[in-house]
Amino acid sequence: MADMDNPMTEIEEDTCWGYLASQEVGRLATAKDGKPEIFPINYCVDGQSIVFRTAGGSKLQELAENANVAFEVDGWTVDGGWSILIKGVAEEITNAAELALADKMPLKPWVPTVKRHYVRVTPDQLSGRSFYFGPEPKN
């Protein structure tokens, strides 16, 4: 974790997965017609990827048009925090064996809607940083 002498530090890739696994909610960034969209999603870590459920609406349509996404998760305490960023590709899971496994993940819809589509985000890049909260330096 960062400290007062070094208020921001990089997080090792293996440790990034631990931080990702410690949370359930993140933000998925997509682009439609060159314009960014951000969706809050609940997710699970599955190996070296994340999986989420969605309905057949705008997220799924945007991913079919442009599978390149960013995904971010943050956490904090009174003293500091961390942020993990994935840049990668999102693909709907269609393989029957993978769908059976995804169906066993603890992914329940937040709102009373049917979400039959599972999507896997596989990173091209994974980065993280931790930071210490404190006052702005005088110099």
Results as ranks from 00 to 15, higher is better:
Glu13Leu: 03
Gly57Ile: 14
Lys108Arg: 08
Met1Asp: 14
Asn139Asp: 09
Trp110Gln: 02
Lys138Ser: 02
Gly75Val: 12
Ser83Met: 10
Val114Gly: 02
Ser127Pro: 02
Asn95Cys: 14
Asn6Ile: 04
Glu98Val: 12
Val51Tyr: 07
Arg116Ala: 07
Asp14Asn: 08
Glu136Gln: 09
Ala64Gly: 14
Leu101Lys: 11
Arg129Gln: 15
Asp79Lys: 15
Ala90Arg: 03
Trp82Asp: 09
Trp17Cys: 02
Val121Pro: 03
Gly134Asp: 09
Lys115Met: 09
Ile50Tyr: 03
Arg120His: 05
Glu72Arg: 10
Pro137Ile: 01
Val119Met: 06
Trp110Thr: 04
Ala31Lys: 01
Gly128Pro: 00
Leu20Arg: 09
Asn95Tyr: 06
Cys16Ser: 08
Thr9Met: 14
Leu101Tyr: 10
Gly88Tyr: 10
Ala70Thr: 08
Thr15Ala: 07
Lys35Pro: 01
Ser22Thr: 05
Ile41Trp: 00
Glu91Phe: 01
Glu12Arg: 13
Gln23Pro: 00
Asp124Leu: 14
Ala55Gln: 10
Ile84Phe: 09
Asp74Val: 12
Asn42Phe: 06
Lys138Met: 01
Ala67Gln: 12
Arg120Lys: 12
Cys16Pro: 01
Tyr132Ile: 11
Gly26Asn: 07
Glu37Val: 00
Glu13Ser: 01
Asn6Ala: 07
Gln125Lys: 10
His117Thr: 05
Glu92Thr: 06
Thr15Asp: 05
Leu85Arg: 13
Gly81Gln: 06
Gly80Val: 13
Ala96Leu: 11
Leu101Asn: 10
Arg129Tyr: 10
Ser49Glu: 11
Lys35Met: 14
Asp124Trp: 01
Glu24Phe: 05
Leu63Cys: 02
Phe71Asp: 00
His117Pro: 00
Lys108Ala: 07
Asp124Cys: 06
Phe39Met: 00
Lys138His: 01
Ser22Tyr: 05
Asp79Val: 15
Thr122Ser: 12
Ala64Arg: 11
Ile38Cys: 08
Asp3Pro: 01
Trp17Ala: 01
Gly134Trp: 08
Leu63Pro: 01
Leu107Tyr: 09
Gln61Asp: 15
Arg116Phe: 02
Gly128Asn: 12
Lys138Gly: 00
Glu37Arg: 06
Cys16Glu: 04
Glu62Arg: 05
Leu60Val: 01
Glu91Ala: 14
Asp46Ala: 10
Asn66Thr: 10
Leu60Arg: 11
Ile84Val: 15
Ala90Asn: 05
Ser58Ala: 14
Ala97Phe: 15
Thr122Tyr: 03
Thr30Phe: 02
Leu85Tyr: 03
Glu12Gly: 08
Gly34Phe: 11
Glu92Ala: 14
Ala64Tyr: 06
Lys87Phe: 03
Asp46Pro: 00
Leu107Phe: 07
Leu28Val: 09
Val45Arg: 10
Leu28Ser: 02
Thr94Pro: 02
Asp3Gly: 10
Pro36Ser: 08
Asp5Leu: 15
Ser130Val: 12
Met8Leu: 12
Asn66Gly: 04
Thr77Leu: 14
Thr30Asn: 03
Val51Met: 05
Gly34Cys: 10
Ala55Glu: 13
Thr94Val: 15
Gln23Trp: 06
Gly57Ala: 14
Thr30Val: 10
Phe133His: 13
Ala29Val: 04
Trp76Leu: 14
Gly56Lys: 15
Lys59His: 06
Asp79Ser: 15
Asp3Tyr: 08
Ala102Glu: 03
Glu72Cys: 11
Pro36Gln: 05
Glu98Met: 13
